[in-house]
Every structure is written in C-alpha cells, then in structure tokens.
C-alpha cells in the first residue's frame, strides 16, 4: 500500500467511524429510553451491540492506517497516550482520548457480567463523552471538512445525537411523571441516626 493510499484510507475510515459511532449512540439512546418499535425491543439492543462492534473496527482501522502512514508522524504510543504525537498534537490528542474512552466502554461491556452493575453503567456513560471528542477531532484535523459534503455529514450526525438526547430527556421526564407516587423518596437518607449506645 502506498503512502498516499494509507493517507486516504485513514481519512475515509475516520469518516465512516464517526457515522457508525453516531449510529451506535443514537441506537443506545433509543434502547435506554425504550423508544417504541415495530420490532421487539431486544432486536434494537442487539443492533446497537453489532453496530458498536463495526464502529470499533473502523476506529481501529482508522488508527492503524494513520499510524502506518509516514506522512503524518504519529507514533504507536500516541494511539493511547494523548499529546505524544508530533503531528497536530492537540487534535490528534483528542482522537487518542476518544480511543481511550471507547476502549473503556468496549472492555467494560465485554466484561459486563463480571463487573458490578454500577461500574458498568458509569463506564458506559463515557460513550456520551466520546462523541464531542470525536467531532472536535474530525473538525480540527480532517482536511475533508473543507468539503461541504463532510460538513453536511458532521451536521447530520450532530443533529441526530442532539435530537435523540432531547427526546430521551423528555421521555425520562414523562416516565417519571407517570410513575405512581410513593412516600419513599428517590434517595432516602441512608445513615440511620444513632440515639444512644453503651
């Protein structure tokens, strides 16, 4: 593979990875928010899982081609340690941070049954953070963003995520309001009060 091919492959896989990441996150939001669907709910959950695998694969390809390409001097170290690349240090660092976050999400999901539910949940929420990181990395670094098609793509992905997040917020509020009221407060005081001891 010539250097030019690697360079273009890196850019292309990056764009595809961004779209797939967007799709993964939107599907995850729809699952968690229990969006109604003609198909059974677990089908969307499975789809989210499979799309996320493909997204991770494309991120890996994007990173691989970027490192192998000698035009941009990005060492292997920079794939996981931010701010160690000599090429566009800050923008590549964002990409590195994105990879770190995705690794955390992917590994915790692979080990889901073995780690406490709370830990899995906290790590999974990092996926939300990976998205603005990825977008900034794309806009700051990608030379393709001078093309209008790329900007339309990025805009579309942003709109999809924003729409899904707003929908989720509203649907959670609706569910909360529809939930029967009990006298148990959402977060009861945990510490029993000590009166006396001997």
């Amino acid at each position: 593979m010539s250097q030019i091919d690697l360079w273009y492959a890196s850019r292309a896989t990056g764009i595809v990875a961004l779209v797939l990441l967007t799709a993964t996150i939107v599907l995850g939001i729809l699952v968690a928010g229990r969006a109604p669907s003609a198909r059974p709910g677990f089908a969307r959950s499975e789809l989210h899982r499979r799309v996320s695998s493909v997204a991770v694969a494309f991120v890996a390809l994007h990173v691989l081609t970027a490192v192998l390409d000698s035009y941009a001097h990005i060492g292997w170290w920079a794939t996981v340690v931010p701010f160690t690349s000599s090429y566009h240090r800050a923008w590549v660092a964002l990409g590195t941070i994105g990879v770190d976050l995705l690794l955390a999400v992917a590994i915790s999901s692979a080990l889901r049954r073995r780690i406490p539910a709370r830990a899995w949940r906290a790590l999974h929420w990092l996926a939300y953070l990976s998205w603005p990181v990825a977008i900034s990395h794309t806009l700051g670094l990608g030379p393709d963003t001078r093309f209008s098609w790329a900007l339309v793509l990025v805009g579309g992905c942003s709109a999809a995520i924003a729409g899904a997040a707003l929908w989720r917020g509203a649907s959670t509020a609706r569910a909360r309001a529809a939930r029967p009221r009990t006298i148990q407060p959402p977060r009861p005081s945990l510490r029993p009060t000590k009166v006396a001891s001997s």
Binding site: R34, P40, G41, F42, A43, S45
Partner: peptide, 9 residues
C-alpha cells in the same frame, strides 16, 4: 420492565 425476555422467550 424492558420486556426483552418476553421477546426472546
């Protein structure tokens, strides 16, 4: 109450 179990089983 996600209901995934009812879909699969």
């Amino acid at each position: 109450g996600f209901g995934f179990c009812a879909g699969i089983l």
